[in-house]
Amino acid sequence: MRGVSLVVRRGRITVVLGPSGCGKTTLLKIIAGLVEPDEGKVLFDGKDYTRVPPEKRGIGMVFQDLALFPHMSVYDNVAFGLRVRGVKEEEVRSRVREALELVGLDPTMYASRKIEELSGGEQQRVALARSLVIEPNVLLLDEPMAHLDYKIKQRLLGEIRRLQRLLGITTVYVTHDQAEAMSIADEVVVMSNGVVLQHGPQREVYERPLSLDVASFFGEANLLEAKFAGIEGEGLVAIRPEDIEINPEEELDVVYEGVVEDLVFQGPLIRVDVRVNGNQLKVLVGRREFYKLGVGVGSKVRLGWKISDVKGAKAAR
C-alpha cells in the first residue's frame, strides 16, 4: 500500500470498496492498530495514534470471520470488552442487556447461548453488539456480511445503518461487494492495488467517476472506444446501462443502430443486450417501459444517450 491518505468524516458511514487483495483490510487493520504502518500516521481527532496499541484506541471492530470467542457464551462475548475495562458486574449486566436489545436479540433468550448454536445472522448481531457495547469512537467493519444469504444481508445492512444513525458513530465499512456499498454508504472510497482511486459522497462517485476503473467497480458500465475532439489518438469512455435509451423519441447527442441479441429479465429491470458495430452494449430498462417498447431478440433498435452522461473521459490517453 502506498500513498494512501484517507480522511474519514465524523458520524458517517464510509465504505471502502475494492477487489480482494487491494489492501482494504490492511488499511482497516492499520486504523485498528493491528498492523503497524511502515510509514505514515494514524490520527484520531487530530491526535497521533500511530504508536498506540489497539487495546487503547477505543475502537469497535467486526471481523470478516466475526472472531467471536467460541469458548464463551453470547453474554460473556458481549461482556468481554466491559470486563477488561474493569466495569462493575452490575453495570456489565445492564449494558450487555441493552446492547443485545439494540441489535435485536432478546437477552433472556440469547444471553446464555453458545456461539456455535447461533445462525450466521445471529452471530453477526452478537459481533455487532460486542463491538458497540464499549461505546467506541470508531466502528470498523471488515466484510462482515461475506458469508450471509442475500435476504439476511439486506436486513442486517439496513439495521447497521439504523444503528449508525441512532448512535452517530463514525463507521468504516470494508467490502468488495458494490451492492453492499450502494445500500449502506454515505461516502465511498474506491481502492485498487493499494491505491485510493476516488473518495467522495456516494452519489458523486457514482455520477462522476474519475476513471473507468471507478466507473466499473462502483456500478455497471459499458466501455466504448472513442475519439476525442482536440486530443490525439483514441481512448475509452464509459456509459452506464441505465443512461442509454432505446428508440429515443427526443433528439440525443449520440445515436447508434444495433440488433437486440439477448434479453435478461432481472425483475424490476430488464437488461437488453444490443450488438452495435461488433460491440455489445448492455442497456437497463424499467419493466413497464420495456413492454411499451415492444422489442424482442432480433429487433433492430436505435440507441441513444446524452454526451453529458458519458463517464471517465479523463481516462483517455
Binding site: 485498528a32 493491528l34 489497539p54 487495546e55 469497535g60 471492530m61 472472531a67 470467542f69 477488561v84 463491538s131
Partner: peptide, 21 residues
C-alpha cells in the same frame, strides 16, 4: 490470530488476551 485481534480491539492487553483467549 483473529480472536486475539478481536480481544485486543475490545481493550484487552497482551497478558489478558493470553489468559482469557
Amino acid at each position: 490470530e483473529n480472536l486475539e485481534n478481536a480481544a485486543r480491539t475490545l481493550g484487552a492487553g497482551g497478558l489478558r488476551t493470553f489468559k482469557d483467549v
